[in-house]
Simulated scan of single mutants.
Amino acid sequence: MKRVLGSWLMVGVLGGCAPQALISDVEPALVQSFEAPPPGSDPNSCWGKDVSPAVIETVRERILVQPAEILGDGTVVSEPIYREDTRQAIVKERRELWFQTPCQDQLTPDIIATLQRALKARGLYSGALTGRMDAGTRAAIRRFQSKQGLDSSILSLWAARQLGLVAVARS
């Protein structure tokens, strides 16, 4: 267990993944590894999980109860009668997305500094090259990955490969 902002956080471990180090003294740590990988996956790999909550909105509809009564000459005898209907509607379904990540033991300070340098070269990171996975680095990771449809600040294996941090096996 690690102490984070006055509360205790349990960090799950998966296969060869080491428990995640404290990311920042100011922000809670992100949990990147889980006790069980997604079904059918390599049990020795590390996984991240992005959960997007459902978006629910209050929808108000005006429903015609009784149409207007209009004479043949166009004279309105009675106005239409409407009722207001208010209900909750799911605008966007909850989404749970598992994705492969580099394991924590691979994210050394040198690799994180290289990650920061790669994100800075793309104009996504403006902080110092500290080698720490801080809030600015996570925000830059989110900006890089969101362009490809993954709105997460957890570094995916795909993004690590695109940024030149992880070798890609040749076939």
Results as ranks from 00 to 15, higher is better:
Asp105Val: 10
Arg170Pro: 04
Val76Glu: 06
Gly48Asp: 04
Ala160Trp: 01
Val77Asp: 05
Arg62Ala: 09
Val51Tyr: 12
Gly164Pro: 07
Ser24Cys: 05
Glu35Met: 13
Gly15Lys: 04
Thr75Cys: 04
Pro109Phe: 01
Ala160Thr: 00
Val168Leu: 12
Gln106Val: 08
Pro109Tyr: 03
Ser156Asp: 01
Asp151Met: 09
Glu69Tyr: 08
Trp98Lys: 09
Val76Gln: 08
Val166Glu: 10
Leu129Phe: 12
Pro28Phe: 00
Ser52Cys: 02
Glu96Trp: 08
Ala139Thr: 01
Tyr125Val: 04
Arg60Gln: 14
Val13Thr: 13
Val168Trp: 11
Gln104Pro: 06
Ala128Asn: 13
Thr130Ala: 06
Leu165Gln: 02
Ala128Gly: 11
Ser52Trp: 10
Arg62Gly: 01
Gln100Glu: 10
Ser41Ala: 14
Thr108Ser: 11
Val31Gln: 13
Gly6Val: 00
Asp25Pro: 12
Pro43Ser: 11
Cys46Trp: 04
Asp105Tyr: 07
Pro37Asn: 03
Asn44Arg: 15
Arg132Gly: 07
Ala18Thr: 14
Ile111Trp: 14
Trp47Glu: 01
Asp42Ala: 02
Val76Ile: 15
Arg142Tyr: 10
Ala29Ile: 12
Arg83Asp: 08
Asp50Thr: 07
Ala89Glu: 12
Gly16Thr: 14
Lys49Tyr: 06
Gln88His: 10
Gln88Asp: 12
Leu115Ser: 01
Gln116Met: 06
Met10Glu: 09
Ala18Asp: 11
Glu93Lys: 12
Arg95Phe: 04
Tyr125Ala: 03
Lys49Asp: 00
Thr130Leu: 09
Thr137Glu: 00
Ala36Thr: 14
Leu64Gln: 02
Pro102Arg: 07
Gln20Ala: 03
Glu96Gln: 13
Gln162Asn: 07
Pro37Phe: 07
Pro43Gly: 05
Glu84Met: 13
Thr108Pro: 09
Pro43Val: 11
Arg138Lys: 14
Pro67Ser: 09
Val77Phe: 08
Gln162Trp: 00
Arg161Gln: 15
Gly48Trp: 02
Lys49Ser: 02
Val65Glu: 12
Pro37Thr: 08
Arg143Ser: 10
Gln100Met: 06
Trp47Leu: 09
Val59Cys: 04
Ser146Ala: 09
Gly6Met: 02
Asp134Phe: 03
Gly123Phe: 13
Pro43Lys: 15
Leu64Asn: 05
Gly74Lys: 04
Pro53Val: 05
Lys2Val: 08
Lys120Tyr: 13
Val11Trp: 09
Gly131His: 08
Trp98Met: 06
Pro80Leu: 04
Val11Met: 13
Lys2Glu: 09
Val31Asn: 08
Ser146Met: 13
Val31Ile: 13
Glu57Val: 10
Arg161Ser: 10
Leu9Pro: 01
Ser7His: 10
Glu79Met: 05
Tyr125Ser: 03
Arg122Phe: 09
Trp8Leu: 07
Gln106Lys: 15
Arg132Gln: 14
Leu163Lys: 03
Ala89Asn: 03
Arg117Tyr: 11
Arg117Cys: 06
Leu165Asp: 00
Gly15Trp: 04
Gly123Trp: 11
Asp50Glu: 14
Pro39Phe: 15
Pro53Trp: 08
Met133Pro: 07
Pro28Gln: 07
Leu107His: 04
Gly15Leu: 01
Pro80Gly: 07
Gln104Val: 09
Gln145Val: 00
Phe99Val: 01
Ala121Gln: 12
Ser41Gln: 06
Pro37Met: 05
Gly164Thr: 09
Ile81Pro: 00
Cys46Tyr: 05
Val55Phe: 14
Gln104Met: 06
Asp85Gln: 14
Leu150Pro: 04
